[in-house]
Design a protein around this nucleic acid. Structure first.
Lengths: 344, 344
DNA sequence: ATGAAAGCGCTAACAT
DNA sequence: ATGTTAGCGCTTTCAT
């Protein structure tokens, strides 16, 4: 095909045998020339690699995997690819994987626990391990999945499983403390999905800090964790008598801002608003959103890092103690001192 | 491991041989029980499937692929996973693939043409075909890649290659015609990346409609196709004497809006702004952005559909004539009649 | 340092 | 309708 020695592979690609023939060595030698600890004379390796280059040969990873039991692939299961929260996670994971020469399978579970389980099973044979982003499945299902495949969790912790999490509870503490410092004494929370691990973490942080600072923290909703949901909560927040709101995430906060504006409530004059995540949107809306920045890119990278660690060296970085990434409050324009009261 | 017959596979998973033994049949029969046109007696198939279920057996796709030459995987190469434009594309592609029981590899080329080529080569053996999203690579590189792998293009057309594109030129026509109907006579364009196919399409549409409607269309920039870039262009637009701006995409338009607001220019009172893409952000900012909605989700699905068509039936849906998806102007709050002039 | 040969888990002739 | 067998492209003993 390329004007060189005839190709054997029935799919038209050069195989290890073609290279061996072209380089005048055995297939074993070609194989060795490609493996790290392969014992080959330098001159031989060069000759092999040169022949391979000429033929456009690339080792078939599937065939290699069949025997080594390693595929060089990892899987990434995400609840919803349309959710901006996961965009940086995917990007980070992909980048880290590529750096280690791993390819990544991606799957969208559509927020469905059953689908997640199915996806993991479907991937299992084709990947060396999978990172599960904020999985919806039950603890039991999770443990069972962990027995089938090498997994690492992202954005959720579970007993005995390696995980990287983002310190939501502390983010909540930071947000509330700052609000208190600004003078707020009644701070509403617009929560996320009932069964969400990060929502429960945020509630935990909220309860702690509320007790410590002696502030009241009415919990609104629940509303859908989206832009619309935030808008719906606007009236309720005003009625609650709160002077500040913390929303489950930036999407909700942005919708909240929108609803507040529609109701003629000035931000931050009459109401301060804080989000979670720091998705790009947060800096693009007016007023720019104060929010708890979650290092999702780093989390994606870290999760793959932990997975690779388990895979390559079998070293389990203290699987019982999730690696928790610090978060930081980013103050922008949606927060300020309370109390101008209703506009005069 | 499961208390059943001893497992053979050296990686602890049940293999076809285990199932054959458990079901009291040969491996060939097990194989047949799993393939579409497999001729097996119903009762036998049931027995096999039951044994497989008991052992937790799932066929190893890599092994199967080794012999059939089909992997059941497709690849998706995206310039930048952080770019919201591609989020729905990925989601759509993933959904369509999953429906046909294909898994998807995803790769981020970081807008680098060389990286794209490398990624395609790296994937080639593990996938049956790949969808190239708005590839940056040269026409020549594209043609060469198409010889290595089965590809379909998304968001770009190239001679002889199957593609699904979005009708950018028509989107521009719609936007400008609407602006003209509103009374605008001088409409600025903030362009995208020089070498972008969609940008050149938009310019083409702009030139056409400008000639037809007799309006002037100063072209600004160039600026980076991001939020910041749009902000930078704000001053330039005002100076150009235009009463309306069309931006390369929503990100640029949003930044533009931001810059305009900072400069005290009222929108749409003193300046109308139109974006491209209709990413979620467009509806969340104030004023809500009028924009040309690109059906990116549908495009992702369609591209995978075309790929699957080529793969499964060898039917090439007129590869010389890209499937072009219609776009539609969505009017929101950032456009209106011109000419209140500078605020009094 | 290199080669021969035995598989990895599976499918596709070819038998029966 | 089912079983036997020869590989797919590769790595890994075991010889040499």
């Amino acid at each position: 095909v390329r004007g060189d020695a005839a190709t054997t592979g029935h799919h038209g690609q050069a195989t290890i045998r073609d290279v061996a023939r072209a380089a005048g060595v055995s297939v074993a030698t070609v194989s060795r020339a490609y493996t790290e600890g392969g014992v080959v004379r330098d001159s031989t390796r060069e000759r092999v690699l040169e022949a391979a280059r000429r033929l456009g040969y690339r080792p078939n990873r599937a065939a290699r995997g069949l025997i080594t039991g390693r595929t060089g692939n990892i899987g990434l299961v995400v609840p919803d690819l349309a959710n901006p929260y996961f965009h940086a996670v995917v990007k980070g994971a992909q980048a880290r994987a590529r750096r280690a020469d791993y390819a990544v399978f991606i799957a969208d579970s559509q927020e469905d626990a059953r689908e997640e389980t199915g996806l993991i099973a479907a991937m299992a044979k084709q990947v060396d391990g999978v990172v599960l982003c904020s999985p919806r499945m039950s603890e039991a299902a999770l443990q069972s999945a962990a027995r089938t495949a090498t997994v690492v969790l992202l954005g959720r912790a579970a007993r005995g499983l390696p995980a990287v999490t983002l310190d939501s509870a502390d983010g909540m503490r930071q947000a509330v403390r700052r609000l208190v410092a600004l003078g707020h004494r009644r701070i509403a929370y617009v929560p996320g999905p009932r069964r969400s691990w990060s929502d429960s973490e945020r509630r935990r942080g909220l309860a702690e800090v509320a007790a410590r600072c002696g502030v009241e923290t009415p919990i609104l909703g629940p509303v859908a964790p989206r832009f619309d949901g935030g808008g719906e909560a606007a009236g309720e927040v005003v009625a609650s008598g709160a002077t500040a709101t913390v929303a489950f995430n930036d999407l909700v906060a942005a919708g909240h801002l929108h609803g507040l504006a529609a109701a003629g409530v000035r931000v931050p004059g009459e109401m301060s608003v804080v989000g979670f995540d720091d998705i790009p949107l947060a800096a693009m809306i007016t007023p720019a959103l104060t929010t708890v920045a979650m290092p999702t890119l780093a989390a994606g990278e870290a999760a793959v890092g932990v997975l690779l660690g388990r895979l390559e060296e079998g070293r389990d970085l203290a699987p019982d103690h999730p690696q928790v990434l610090p978060v930081a409050l980013v103050e922008r324009e949606s927060t300020g001192p309370p109390g101008e009261g209703r506009r005069g």
